[in-house]
């Protein structure tokens, strides 16, 4: 399969992987480009159908307005939660810094 005929290019898959913080090997890149191409190909099959008379649906389930009353429930115990955190400081989760870009 050449890049032109594929619904998704290896470059696009690389970008998506980067956004998802995934590092792909060359073999994985090829495999996922192929698999994602198949999925997009299936969507293309549906696009090929004449759906002019079909109402667009925002959700597959015909359900609206599921609510919860504004009433407090039981919180989790902080010590329980923090006991499973990788790092803790002052009752807070300690995490590595992010966003390095600056000038």
């Amino acid at each position: 399969m050449t890049e032109q005929s594929s619904p998704i290019t290896a470059a696009e898959v690389t970008k998506v992987a980067k956004l998802a913080r995934l590092t792909l090997t060359d073999a994985e890149l090829e495999r996922f480009t192929h698999q994602l191409g198949d999925i997009l190909g299936h969507a293309a099959d549906i696009e090929a159908l004449d759906l002019t008379d079909v109402e667009p649906m925002a959700r597959p389930i015909p359900l609206t307005n599921v609510f919860r009353p504004d009433e407090p429930g039981e919180p989790l115990d902080r010590d329980d939660v923090l006991s499973v955190a990788p790092a803790v400081e002052d009752n807070q989760f300690r995490v590595p810094p992010s966003l390095g870009e600056d000038s």
Partner: peptide, 18 residues
């Protein structure tokens, strides 16, 4: 989207749920 309390100035990580 959940029943954890919305308040300002609470003790850190006390208004948390799953």
């Amino acid at each position: 989207f959940c029943s954890a309390v919305n308040e300002f100035g609470g003790e850190p990580n006390t208004n948390i749920d799953p």
